[in-house]
Amino acid sequence: MRGNLGAALFQIAIGIFAAAVFTADGQPRRAFAPADPSNPLRYLIPGEEFLPPAIAAQQADDFDNPAFALVETGERAWAAPEGTLGRSCRSCHGSGNRNGVRQAAATYPKYVSGLKEVITLTSRINLCRKGNLGADVLAEDSTPMLGMTAYLRWLARGIPETVDNTGPAAELFERGRALYQTKQGLLQLSCAQCHHERFGQKFGGDALSQGHPVAYPAYKTDQQRVITLHERFRMCNTLVRGKGQPDGSDDYIALELFLNWRSRNLPITAPGVRP
């Protein structure tokens, strides 16, 4: 009896926090309330809601998700000693749970006071590799780096995005917000014009989503490999016939910070699968 009442109350709670929105032909879509009233989006709709259902199902199933091999690579690397100090990540962080490492991937890009800089998850991994393992720094888009980010992001699966955009991160955040509205490329389109004003509409064969970053790194089916979030930015730059930037550029970190704030409250779903 109480269980049932609990369930009913739970459903009501879900109804408040995760309302359904409807498409033109009356199909419901899952949606979450943004964490901040100042978020320009009224509802956060996960990217999976705009995918062909078969691809969304593939993402949700670890055995079917092609990016999962990379998660396993990362998991093995986590426990394998490397570098001159004879340690592995696990020596200090335990089996992916201690020191808050499970949640960590939902909080980046993050301001690090020691560096006086906002850094991405990949930079954080490299910091630990250099300082705590005595190992070499990995390239942003190298397979071992993709493996480690995929593993850490997968650990955070289901945890709501909670990036901090205040204090010392505010300046970079504002830069990201401005970039998001800047018209770019020969077509002179801003990120907002596609992902804010026109999501749900079709651009070529793809339905435009709200452009949330929570599923990255993600397996791109047409290229049969896993791509970073910054590579997705480059693809969008190419769509408007503009110039892309390398992974880890200041502009891309600013955009990543703004996008993560914009999706605050959406659960992490990495590693994603995309057509």
Binding site: M1, N4, L5, A7, A8, Q11, I12, G15, A19, A20, V21, F22, P28
Partner: peptide, 21 residues
């Protein structure tokens, strides 16, 4: 009870529909 639960969710869906339209 199950019926009430059903009603609650029905109500929610209807409510969001109304809000949206």
């Amino acid at each position: 009870m199950a019926k009430m639960q059903g009603r609650a969710s029905l109500f929610l869906w209807a409510a969001s529909l109304v809000v949206f339209s």
